[in-house]
Design a protein around this nucleic acid. Structure first.
Lengths: 215, 215
DNA sequence: GCGACTTGTAAAGAGGTTGTGAAAGACGCT
DNA sequence: AGCGTCTTTCACAACCTCTTTACAAGTCGC
């Protein structure tokens, strides 16, 4: 069961309420946030929506409407991450069984530590997308990355070692210099390309060389 | 400019309003829909949100709050679209996936550095518009350009090389002497046409550029 | 066409980013 | 507590990108 939205009853809103709201919206951008207050003024509601709340209900309010608004927000959220199917995550040779806390490569189990697994899971859930280190750290470690922290790099390396040992010839984790990392199943040595005629273009072809295309 | 949300004023809602709302929500699931009505009852609002509206405002309502609600919905939409990669930027053969930090030409990936990518993105977002160097620098580098800085020119060149290598016969980045650069998909060698005799409105030659238009 | 200015092009060094191996520290188990 | 495992930190090497510079080529007004 996945949470798509929360209903936050702040009562009569005060300073504590604002910082709380900001923290929720900042920390969990994927979560729908509906705020419920007693007698909030228009400027307050405006401020709340600006901070990041998805909806704002003022008491007294009808239960039916509250439910409908929750549904509306939750539906939006669900749609936004429609790809988060419940089945195992499969990218190329790699299969991730989230519920079992286990990753497989070519059918046999991969021995990962907790951090390694959660990093792999995050990357795989965002297949094809470049994630920067701050985002990775925030979502795997659960709090903000300290300046100069190299943990992400180190764990990327560990994952790479374990993955590429199991399926040689494929590279999964790609570095985007100055940006972050991207997870995708690609042949590490694109055939038919002579190293040297590339010029400025390092010709990493995204689509053509996917080994086992995953629709 | 991309539309993220619409505000639909249905007045006093009747049967026509319902079918209209259903059509909008059904036809354009990616669009945020905010409904505005006069004196809709709670069951009516519940029904509207169930049909697929993202928010529901009842008149009389404060303009400030309306704007805040539009912003909230639009923000959600934008985020959802960026996250799911729903809205790649497509100009001619070039496709830009902002969330993936990746650009494709003719379906295969173009490997760009961070600055190159951000420059391309800026140009593509302003397709057909001439951007001067100061603006480009300000928006890609994030601060004002120093006098005599040639960085923009250098990166324009790098982009041109990578783009034109991949789709020969087309030029995307056009120089406007003394002004700046303009991004548009055009055949690079149109015979008998001197670049410059386009007159005053050179900006809107937005050919939808069928790739086979060269014959 | 001439001169002044703008833009194209190529290359190299500086500076920052990432890869890598190993040691130190934290954690959990018996 | 003792031990092994996992995590974090550190230092250095390797690498990539950005910026700068210099010169060539192009464009505009006269």
């Amino acid at each position: 069961m996945k949470v798509n939205a929360v209903l936050v009853d702040l009562g009569v809103i005060g300073e504590g309420g604002w910082s709380y709201l900001e923290r929720i919206c900042g920390l969990m951008p994927d979560l729908g946030v509906i705020v419920c207050t007693a007698g909030a003024t228009v400027p307050q509601r405006v401020r709340g929506l600006r901070v990041g709340a998805d909806d704002w209900i003022n008491k007294p309010c009808h239960p039916e409407e509250v439910i409908a608004r929750i549904e509306a927000v939750a539906r939006r959220r669900r749609r936004a991450r429609a790809e988060t199917g419940m089945g195992p995550l499969v990218i190329g040779e790699v299969e991730i069984r989230v519920d079992q806390y286990q990753a497989l490569v070519g059918g046999s189990g991969l021995d990962l530590t907790r951090r390694e697994f959660e990093l792999l899971q995050l990357l795989a859930e965002n297949e094809g997308r470049v994630l920067d280190r701050e985002t990775i750290y925030q979502r795997v470690w659960g709090y903000a990355m300290a300046h100069g922290d190299r943990s992400v790099d180190v764990f990327i390396r560990k994952l790479r070692l374990k993955l590429e040992k199991r399926s040689p010839g494929f590279s999964y984790i790609h570095t985007h210099f100055g940006v972050g990392y991207r997870f995708a199943a690609e042949t590490s040595v694109p055939e038919g390309l002579t190293p040297g005629d590339e010029g400025l273009d390092r010709a990493e072809s995204q689509t053509s060389s996917a080994p086992s295309a995953r629709a």
